[in-house]
């Protein structure tokens, strides 16, 4: 039962005080991902079944015989959270229809990191979304394989240093830009796609609530600051998340039935990327020319998004 039925009139003091993802887990200090997860669970409520991919959140929360989960939870493997979640949805639907379980709506959600979503989990995710399951998928994107030791993924940003895209003498970090997964999800013609960041908790919870209430496939891409992997200070998680959004590097928006809408306002002049980059060790090898290249890429992606915001119309 959700305490708050309508998040549109939602205020911080109305947030459910119960923790469905409990303290005592083993996440790093300042982990943005675990903060996002905690808020997601508060917005989802207890009538939820979680299918979790292998990754940081699975490892920190379920060392047998311990669990941080107050809702039904299943972990199977790395790449198949969406497939497991679609099986959970189908199972619950059939059992409810046949009167074998209580006649009550229970939401199936799948949660994975960026590797389990944009790389190894992409096929299962694409299949689940295309099939139209009543499944909400949350990607907790910390921009690399943090659980295995900070290796690059296709969600790693341009020029970031990771342990497999190091800042070398010949090649300066990640050679490609971030794969635009929200865009790929929009191309699946699903009713709801959003980006979110726990630095904007109310916006995040609103989007989670929307994803939950859509009786169909929904996808929320959650920017999750990783002080450990980004070589940042653990007390600057919220600040880094805000900067990623303010620079337009990770804009907050949602796509409802094909209609793009920014969920925060941008002024003509966005915060420069340099502010964001200089707080992180993974970008410390960047010289002014590199920073200009990163800025140009961010500007280009932002323009593409703004074009969609201005021109897109809803399918229905």
């Amino acid at each position: 039962m959700n305490t708050v039925e309508n998040f549109e009139i939602f205020a911080p003091r109305l947030i459910d005080k119960r923790e469905l993802f409990c303290p005592g887990h083993r996440a790093c200090q300042g982990c943005g991902e675990v903060l996002a997860l905690r808020l997601i669970m508060k917005a989802l409520g207890e009538d939820t079944v979680v299918s979790n991919a292998t990754g940081c959140m699975e490892i920190v929360s379920t060392a047998y015989p311990h669990t941080a989960w107050e809702v039904p939870y299943i972990h199977v493997a790395f790449e198949n959270a969406a497939a497991v979640g679609s099986g959970v949805e189908a199972g619950l639907k059939a059992l409810r229809r046949k009167g074998k379980i209580a006649d009550r709506y229970v939401k199936s959600v799948a949660i994975a990191g960026d590797g389990g979503t944009v790389d190894i989990g992409l096929q299962a995710l694409s299949g689940a979304m295309e099939r139209g399951h009543d499944l909400a998928f949350f990607c907790l994107d910390n921009e690399a394989y943090m659980n295995t030791g900070i290796q690059r993924s296709s969600a790693t940003p341009f020029m970031a240093a990771t342990t497999t895209s190091p800042a070398g003498k010949a090649i300066k970090g990640q050679r490609t830009g971030k794969k635009n997964l929200p865009e790929i999800m929009v191309a699946h013609n699903i009713p709801y796609v959003a980006t979110a960041c726990p630095s904007y908790p109310i916006d995040l919870m609103n989007k989670v609530e929307k994803a939950r209430n859509i009786k169909g496939p929904a996808y929320v891409h959650v920017f999750s600051v990783c002080p450990t992997g980004w070589r940042g200070a653990s007390n600057e998680t919220i600040k880094l998340g805000r900067m990623a959004v303010e620079t337009g590097f990770f804009p907050l928006y949602e796509v409802e039935n094909g209609k793009y809408r920014l969920t925060m306002e941008y002024t003509e002049k966005r915060r420069p990327m340099e502010d964001y980059l200089k707080l992180q060790g993974r970008f410390r090898h960047l010289d002014p020319a590199d920073i200009a290249k990163v800025q140009a890429l961010v500007d280009k992606e932002f323009r593409k998004l703004m074009h969609k915001v201005e021109t897109s119309v809803p399918w229905s």
């Binding site: 199977v76 497991v84 959970v88 059939a94 059992l95 199936s108």
Partner: peptide, 10 residues
């Protein structure tokens, strides 16, 4: 994987 998820619901 879907069979695992569905079987886990009973």
């Amino acid at each position: 994987s879907a069979c695992v998820g569905a079987s886990a619901t009973g």
